[in-house]
Design a binder for these strands. Structure first.
Ligand SMILES: [Zn+2]
Ligand SMILES: [Zn+2]
Ligand SMILES: [Zn+2]
Ligand SMILES: [Zn+2]
Lengths: 135, 135
DNA sequence: CTTATAAATGTTATATTATTACATAGTGTT
DNA sequence: AACACTATGTAATAATATAACATTTATAAG
């Protein structure tokens, strides 16, 4: 047995790997149909194949969806344990997106309780502004 | 002149008013095509009419878009000056959405700076969890 | 190895969300 | 009236996402 149980559990299926590789190499967030177009040469021909892989990759925390852009980026927080606690900065000019990893911020938000004392299991935060280059 | 300049500047056009009223009365976020369906009897017949009104209302801070749901809710923070600083709690069971208004939270986020010292002009935060009723 | 089960894939069609483009009408200003 | 600006009406289409169902592949158990 070349691949251990643990490794296998964390490994990606064929389509997942193809799509993750594409997103991971991309300097910018990719949209589902951009992905579809770019993997058709690898045999992935239809939207459901792309969306299914994206769903799984998001679940695993390997990628994140930028909700305001309907686009996906790879997680670079060492394969994010925090698919449930995401924060991004988005440049409104060049559309550059960066995942924010701030211990202070995540601690603050993880502990945030609203007026009803409701505590949350998950959050997504998107900051907008101008990046260094565009300022 | 019955309507002053200032009043006029802040007043809504016919379609904007119709669509705002519908959203404002709704206990839950409304999607664009749900809105379209509900205002057809008032003469708004096509998607662009709805999307244009929604865009303006969002700009004005009269409504907010819940990005993770592609849906819109009325602002209840006294016609939100803070269209640029929004936070919501979303129940993952019943889909109830509440706008969070916490001085502490908004202060924390408004002052948040990332590692590059980038300061942001806008943010949107969505918390997910279970509401009182669903817990 | 066989069987059972779950996960992933392939495929067609369709649903949902959003925009482009262009023509027309109203509003406020000079 | 002439102009600029905002809003509206309308048709067509683009972009994003899911439903449904058949098939295959991977994993685990007996
Ligand atoms: Zn991450
Ligand atoms: Zn930029
Ligand atoms: Zn508000
Ligand atoms: Zn609930």
């Amino acid at each position: 047995m070349v691949i251990s149980k643990i490794d296998k559990m964390h490994s990606l299926s064929k389509n997942q790997q193809i799509i993750f590789d594409l997103i991971d190499k991309s300097p910018e967030p990719l949209k589902a149909y951009t992905i579809l177009f770019n993997v058709q040469k690898k045999g992935i021909k239809a939207p459901p194949q792309v969306y299914r892989a994206l769903d799984k990759l998001v679940e695993m925390g390997k990628i994140h969806k930028i909700e305001s852009r309907n686009a996906f980026i790879a997680c670079h927080n060492s394969s994010c344990q925090v698919a449930k606690a995401t924060a991004f900065s988005i440049c409104e000019i060049c559309e550059k997106v960066t995942e924010i990893s701030s211990a202070g911020l995540s601690k603050y938000l993880a502990n945030f309780k609203d007026k009803d004392g409701m505590k949350y299991s998950k959050y997504n935060l998107e900051f907008f502004g101008l990046c260094k280059k565009c300022r």
